[in-house]
Computed example of a mutant assay.
Amino acid sequence: MEQWLLYGVLALLPLAAYSGYLVGRKQLKGKQGGSLSSNYIKGLNYLLNEQPDKAVDTFIDLLKVDTDTVETHLALGNLFRKRGEVDRAIRLHQNLIARPQLSSSDRNTALYQLGLDYNAVGMYDRSEKLFKELLEDPAHKNDSLVQLLNIHQLTRDWDDAAKIAETLQSSMGVEQSKPISHFYCELADQKRREGDNKAALSNLKKALNINPDSVRASLLQGRIHLRQNQYKQAIKAYQRILQQDIAFLPEALPDISQAYSEVKDYSGYKQFLDKSLEMGAGVSVLVELSKIIQKEKGDKAAAILIGEFLQERPSLKGLQRLIALHIEHAQDSAKPSLQLLDDIVEKLISRKPRYECENCGFHTKAIYWQCPSCKEWSSVKPIKGIEGE
């Protein structure tokens, strides 16, 4: 507690000194320095006596709002918000905005800061109203657009998020195609859960028009077609993943297998897997192909396929598949050792994350289209290498 108070004192001293300078200058101009000077000293005494709350109140009283002290108010409000004293920041900014002599520019700056205060305590309806008002001010338009975009994402208002992101892209020239496509995917997923597949597919079409490399849109589109027994359309949607980002293909493999099976195109599925491996697909595709080879040519041919792959691209998942192929044909004396090795590999695989954020390094076993840590869209990717694909 004492350490916290010390930090508070140190944080407020520069602001107190600046406030004193402004007050002193006013005193010289107006020759009314007695009471102000004594209040300023009183504020410093509060700081030195580790009473920051009383010191802050004293300095607020000292700051007469005019063109010379607006910046000090804003700095003090920002300090309150960073310290978690958002109620004080709100009170200060509201008091500032209420002053009739405040210039339009300073009022808008105070409004923006008040919007940040409301955001900090989750009062998004109030902050949204302020930021929308500030869209008319060129000096605050872009910052307000960024804040509105954050609000709509937090409140999962994906339709408005897409509109704001499009405005932000045209206003600032900042590329927003990836997040916009995800907003339409979010809308599509909502409609899918509500049973409105037509609206879902319409939103996915928008997502792909904005970002043709949207793996998420292809996955959702394929899933919807599959549930509607539209197997050829599902296959077509899933095939796009090869060009979009082949690392995500394992997410679709069970559905792809089902779609080819429903249309009885078994050779087509095998060709798809072969092509995928040629294009750099990971070990999950290899394991799937080995199951087909096992049925057609036996365990030995499947084991040879896995072994050749592992020589170039070592993989725990591939090793586990190879062990499984050998257990059935191993001598009784060797089976316990192979089973133990299989158990060890299984534990290693189960403990390892499957995905990693390329932006912040966040690890996870589940797929996230927006990183929970850094909030970046499309940054979480499947892990490659011996512990991944």
Rank of each mutant, 00 (worst) to 15 (best):
E128C: 07
G361F: 04
L208M: 09
Y368M: 06
P179Y: 11
T155P: 04
S103L: 07
Q294V: 00
E376Y: 09
L341W: 07
A237V: 10
S333H: 04
L322S: 06
N211P: 02
C360K: 05
L310T: 09
D117L: 06
L242S: 14
L44I: 11
N229K: 10
L204V: 06
L148W: 09
L62Q: 01
M1D: 15
L130A: 06
E251G: 06
L76E: 06
Q113T: 00
G222A: 10
I292K: 05
E358D: 06
Y231M: 13
L145M: 12
V283C: 00
P353F: 05
S276K: 06
S333F: 03
R81S: 12
L76P: 09
H152G: 05
S267P: 00
T58S: 10
R223E: 12
E128G: 05
L322N: 02
A200W: 04
C185Y: 08
K264W: 00
D196S: 09
V86I: 14
D213C: 08
K64P: 00
S315T: 01
I349D: 00
A207E: 02
M123C: 04
Q311W: 01
I383Y: 06
S214N: 10
L201E: 07
L92G: 03
K295R: 13
P382Y: 06
E175I: 11
D68N: 14
I256P: 00
D343E: 12
I151C: 03
R227Q: 11
A89Q: 11
C371W: 00
E175A: 15
E328F: 02
N45K: 09
L102E: 07
V345H: 01
L273P: 03
R91P: 02
D137F: 03
G122L: 07
A334F: 01
Q101F: 05
A16P: 03
V380K: 02
S181I: 02
